[in-house]
Design a binder for these strands. Structure first.
Lengths: 185, 185
DNA sequence: TCATAATGCAAGTTAGTACTTACATTCATA
DNA sequence: TATGAATGTAAGTACTAACTTGCATTATGA
């Protein structure tokens, strides 16, 4: 059993729940290592946090957007990429919620570029698709569409219908936003 | 000088900067009162926080949306109300940033309904306008448009162009989103 | 198997912070 | 002006948590 892997798993699980406020004691317990080991390896709690988060972000936000971008019909493409990004975000909603919270508090400045991480795949996909077209959409406008959808998802209470969407519902919403993006061209 | 007013001002200023993590010591210093006075009046830091925030929210998020809703041209109305809400949010961006951060962390549950506060005026305005029309827009879709714009504003770094918008820029953005909302009818 | 590095254990240091208590002082008001 | 309520001062309590230290134990690799 790789100790590093063990620490990362435990740390992520704790940090996602409690953010940077989580204690090294909790992390150590969850990871099944001694607290002092964390300090010997990462010196500070902050450094542990940043290291672990960067690691997990690389893994989770990579994507197959370039596949999606091959779709030639723009409305379909937009629908698909929004749906895809929405799915990635939804699957990691606890993580994103925590990161957004820390980011708003200014705890991530200079260390983790959250907007870049969240939207880079979207932008890559859009760039790829629209190089083949003689028109293009406003990328920031698209990002705002996606951001709005996801913000709703994050802040609305659990019993709100928006948080009980089926895959089909998500697709419908994605399509609706795709259409509204297209209409601005 | 009203002591209550004094406390509220100091507390808001400190809480907006540091969120619930701010210490009662800081609040007391900023407000120019003794720390123990805060405890005698509000018992706990949490209670002080909630009391102060509720008070300030009532003041700042009230609006003249019903005036705006009188505009008969729907595109113009949508542009105006989005611009208006955007302005209210921008003027209180530090407050909203902090509240959103605390909300995402789950610290406001059952105490302050942030989505309700942020979007209730928008909904009121939309309701008012569309009672006179034989069509209407998807209110949640509108809220997501507004949410997306504002999320960009909140999380993008200060040097990003989006945070240096002129009044005219804001109007253009509002119009763009208004049009895209209209296109979904 | 032996030396070195990594880990665990236990105790301690330091600093912060919510909240309390006792007593002195000021303020408002009848 | 007298009295009770609100405030200030100062000290203290209890607890938490980041980070350290010294020593014993275990893993690892030549």
């Amino acid at each position: 059993m790789d100790k590093t892997e063990q620490i990362f798993k435990g740390a992520i699980s704790v940090f996602v729940k409690k953010g940077m406020q989580a204690t090294t004691q909790e992390v150590a317990k969850e990871a099944g290592v001694a607290e002092v080991t964390l300090y010997r390896r990462y010196s500070t709690k902050e450094n542990l946090f940043i290291t672990v988060i960067k690691h997990v972000l690389e893994r989770k936000f990579g994507s197959h957007v370039l596949e999606i971008a091959k779709e030639d019909d723009t409305e379909l493409f937009l629908t698909n990429i929004i749906e895809d990004r929405l799915e990635v975000l939804s699957k990691n909603d606890d993580l994103v919620r925590m990161l957004l919270s820390e980011s708003l508090r200014g705890n991530l400045t200079d260390k983790i570029n959250l907007p870049e991480i969240i939207f880079s795949s979207l932008k890559k996909g859009l760039d790829s698709h629209f190089t083949r077209k003689d028109y293009k959409v406003d990328i920031d406008f698209c990002a705002r569409q996606l951001g709005g959808v996801f913000l709703s998802y994050l802040i609305l209470p659990n019993d709100y219908p928006f948080n009980k969407l089926t895959k089909q519902d998500r697709k419908d919403i994605a399509r609706k936003h795709a259409k509204s993006i297209l209409s601005t061209i």
